[in-house]
Design a protein around this nucleic acid. Structure first.
Length: 297
DNA sequence: CGTTCAACCTGGGCGC
DNA sequence: TGCGCCCAGGTTGAAC
């Protein structure tokens, strides 16, 4: 395998989505005066028949708060005063591969603002933008029951940042699957994607091919610790941006956790800990990166 | 139960 | 220089 090949993606996983959620805090308390949705994008709008209707339903709603469920963001919306009899709704945003949430940046002395059109979205004041280059992301407007159906525990496992060590182990330890594959299962634990799975397994010293059943209790404890440490550190550094075409913060800036990557996309390069060449294998049709010496069965 | 595969997409890398 | 194929990965759903 050519070591120079760039396995760069940098898609929104838990740290990136949490950074987006924190980044749009300025929109909380604001009313949606107008929603403009592109026609023919944002594919599976299962609970909202068309972008036009969704735009109509959003108009007048007040953004009351933001929540995150794994890799999804839910904006809690209340109806405007005239519609007070209606129940709260949630706009559930799933960025998937290339979805971005951006807020307008109040102009300051340091900014030169050029309003342009083209491949990047033009940002104007007091706007919240969802921009998705590849159009795989989804927006769904649901009530409390709908939120439970798509983000509840029947659908998503406990959030990786919140889950206790015991619960984490119990949900995974009986599985015959390779631990790397199991970590990506959002029904088991929500929020982990391909990049952070590789990083946490490296730090825990666990071979990604080991079956969950074969992992000892102390190693589950270690994995749980490094999982939460990695996710917290990645949130502090506002996520990972591996090429300028992918993830950005809500202020359209790159994340900084990529400087901390130990194995992801480093195949062919020496392990920073032992010098062994980092390997790339494929598990469940996804790239897995690991150090064959530091990570043991 | 677990896995494999295809589909949804675009843009960058690479072979020819 | 350029055409066309391959590939990244989150999620779903079907087939085995």
């Amino acid at each position: 395998m050519c070591p120079t090949r760039r396995w760069e993606s940098g898609v929104p996983e838990l740290p990136e989505v949490e950074t987006m959620r924190r980044g749009i805090a300025s929109a909380v308390g604001m009313r949606i005066d107008q929603a403009v949705l592109p026609q023919g994008r944002l594919r599976p709008l299962s609970t909202t028949p068309s972008p036009g209707l969704l735009a109509k339903q959003l108009r007048g709603c007040v953004i009351e708060g933001t929540e995150r469920y794994g890799k999804r963001i839910a904006l809690r919306l209340s109806m405007s005063a005239g519609d007070r009899q209606k129940e709260d709704r949630w706009l559930v945003i799933e960025p998937r591969m290339t979805g971005l949430l951006l807020v307008s940046v109040p102009p300051t002395q340091e900014h030169v603002r050029l309003r342009l059109s083209g491949p990047t979205p033009a940002i104007t004041s007091h706007e919240l933008l969802f921009w998705d280059r590849r159009g795989l992301g989804t927006l769904r407007l649901v009530n409390a029951k709908g939120l439970e159906e798509i983000c509840g525990e029947a659908r998503l496992g406990p959030d990786a940042l919140m889950i206790s060590c015991e619960c984490f182990r119990e949900r995974l330890c009986g599985s015959a699957r390779a631990v790397k594959v199991a970590l990506l299962d959002q029904h088991a634990v929500a929020g982990i994607g391909n990049l952070y799975a590789a990083e946490m397994l490296f730090l825990a010293g666990i071979d990604p091919r080991v079956r969950c059943q074969q992992i000892s209790r102390p190693r589950w404890k270690r994995l749980h610790e490094v999982m939460q440490a990695v996710l917290h550190e990645a949130i502090e550094l506002e996520g990972s941006t591996l090429s300028d075409a992918t993830y950005r913060t809500a202020l359209n800036e790159p994340g900084r956790y990529q400087a901390r990557h130990r194995v992801y996309a480093r195949n062919g390069q020496p392990c920073q800990q032992c010098g062994t060449v980092v390997r790339r294998i494929v598990q469940a049709q996804r790239s897995t990166f690991f150090c064959p010496k530091c990570q043991r069965r």
